[in-house]
Design a protein around this nucleic acid. Structure first.
Lengths: 365, 365
DNA sequence: CCCGAGCATGCACTCGTTTGCAAGGACTGC
DNA sequence: GCAGTCCTTGCAAACGAGTGCATGCTCGGG
């Protein structure tokens, strides 16, 4: 079998023996079309296309197609200092909350010809900052940030420098940039209503880290909802991170004192940790303690027991964030907007009426 | 409050009023250090650093640091036609199997200064091909592909053109490129052994799509294992995709005839679909039918019932793939290698001895 | 019939870096 | 003391595309 010409290229420029064929350049199509490279550039570019005679446009585009010409984004970026690329910062792709968001972003941006560069920051400000800088060096046109802290110097700094960006899921205080998030407050309110409706009075909250907006907003909403029902709002433990381990630790702490009959977890991972803590203490969910999560992660409905959770439209979160950024990049919209997407409480097997009499917890081990 | 200088830049080049300060360029550094840009370039570049007098190197680097200079990767890429970027093709980031793999890739490549560009192909050859082309246009230095088909013209073509790439998870036949995958055959063998050990004789296989290697390899391994036990190896249905819906459809088909007492599912998603089919038929897992998955996706251990599955080291799969690609890119290794990572059967609640007498299935509805 | 307007195209420079080649200087060995 | 060599640095030409400006052409109106 002999070497065959690479697919997708015409055979006009004699393919030399090395098996890597040079991509045709703008100059090549210009020559082939008998025009100056500048003219070819204008003919190929939709924005400047009107400057050149239609017949010429046709000829150039025809040759471009025949040669299989594709613009070199690198060269274009160097000249235009834009890159048709946006940077996406997430804490950890391995957290099931984020893949759907990222997918939504990629799909929406992809439709507009953008590609995305993602980075995992593990909630480490140093990593966040270095990734941010690296992406800026790569001339990304904008950012979608899912790692923002409530008080985030990096974000403020970037916003002050006029870097186009959109926050998703997590917001930053006093920051004048567009953002999209779920309607956390309403979600928590519905959750508390649900539990109270079932008869619960002793409701605790395993709060997410208070330095991120989701943690703070949900905590505030929890307090407000409890107060509106005339119930104690101070059974709260703050988790160190949105992780199972942290959730477990928090609930163990709560079980240690006057045991609540229901727990509003800051998110699904924390709720999973609560499951673990209950199991270790010989308690059952929902018979002894009801648990509610947040986010409605994929597959969470198949858990043992299926977790009652607040569904947030994760994919749409990504799509909407992408849209906001596109608006900003196209210069259509300049004034920042904050979009809250509606949520819905999905009731499953992890919530039930409180036990008539509290069983004693069995010490672990 | 007046405009303040952007962080990270010295104040030497007078910052003009617009709030976006121009990044210092190599020329700036050279001027500041009193040398020619070429010299500055060599001084900054570790590979060429030895060509310039140590004192000069120090001076240049000092000025670069003072100015906050960072090379412009775009300009560098244009010149070198390399980009320190690799493309990663996955079917769907939303499938829990892939985030850990991608994370492994990003971590390993990131340590070597590479960034990754990911794309979701949804197993659509057209999307795969266009994403591949777009990434090549962006001068990616290589690819890590998790979407390869068993017989994949695109992969063959790229390999023939000498594009550096590594296959991960899914392999392609007769393709002379490096690849890393789990030891699927052994995993299936262990699975069958486990089921037979429990007393099962009527074992079926819900195979993944046979046009991808994982589907084909696991099917072959299933047949071989069954034969070695002297059992029927023809209770097999091929799923249209690795999805819950497909798994459900397959098992419904199997339940229709002579019902097996155990099912080896092609992966965890198919196993979840099997759960659904059983529930619809009024059958119980594991009392009526045992089910085994593959991959040991995150959180699968918390299912109802917890799924027995073959654990594959997903993160390590990514890391190893990245390593192979780095070897290739650095020119150290040229000869392709295929790496099989070890797997382990994790026995959980979805497998049990077969029922003494088969209960009749209750028709759905 | 001539001049000016306007359209289509070409010219040349630029974006920021890398790199082959050449030149200048210092130093060594004879 | 001179030639040859090495070391250090500068020069200039790329990489591939975009774009302000100039130029040449055509056409219309007076």
């Amino acid at each position: 079998m002999t070497a065959h010409p690479p697919a997708g290229y015409g055979y006009l420029p004699a393919a030399s023996l090395p098996h890597v064929a040079p991509r045709p350049t703008l100059r090549d199509v210009a020559t082939a079309a008998g025009v100056h490279p500048a003219t070819a550039s204008r003919a190929l570019n939709d924005a400047t296309r009107s400057l050149v005679r239609p017949a010429t446009v046709a000829r150039v585009r025809e040759m471009a197609a025949a040669l299989g010409y594709q613009v070199n984004p690198i060269a274009r970026s160097l000249k235009t200092s834009r890159s048709e690329t946006v940077g996406v910062l997430v804490p950890d792709l391995t957290n099931p909350l984020f893949p759907p968001i990222v997918r939504g972003i990629e799909d929406a941006l992809g439709d507009s010809g953008y590609t995305v560069l993602t980075a995992n920051t593990d909630n480490d400000p140093a990593r966040t900052s270095s990734n941010f800088a690296a992406m800026q060096a790569r001339q990304v046109d904008g950012f979608i940030v899912a790692t923002a802290l409530l008080d985030d110097p990096l974000m403020h700094d970037a916003a002050a420098r006029g870097v186009p960006m959109v926050l998703v899921n997590r917001l930053t205080e006093h920051l004048d940039v567009s953002a999209v998030s779920a309607d956390d407050a309403t979600g928590i309110e519905r959750t508390v209503d649900h539990l109270v409706g079932l008869g619960h009075r002793d409701i605790a909250h395993v709060a997410g880290p208070l330095r991120v907006s989701t943690g703070a907003v949900r905590l505030r909403a929890f307090r407000a909802a409890m107060q509106s029902h005339g119930l104690r709002d101070d059974r709260v433990v703050e988790a160190e991170a949105y992780s199972e381990a942290a959730g477990r630790a928090c609930l163990l702490k709560l079980l240690d004192g006057d045991r609540p009959t229901a727990v509003v977890a800051g998110n699904d991972l924390l709720a999973l940790g609560c499951y673990d803590a209950l199991a270790e203490s010989g308690l059952s969910c929902p018979d002894d303690v009801s648990i509610v999560g947040f986010n409605d992660m994929p597959f969470i409905s198949r858990l043992q027991p299926p977790l009652t959770s607040v569904r947030v439209p994760q994919y749409e979160l990504g799509v909407e964030a992408a849209r906001l950024l596109l608006d900003r990049l196209s210069g259509r919209t300049v004034t920042p907007r904050v979009v809250l997407l509606p949520v819905r409480l999905v009731v499953r097997g992890s919530t039930a009426p409180p036990p008539l009499v509290k069983r004693p917890a069995r010490p672990a081990g």
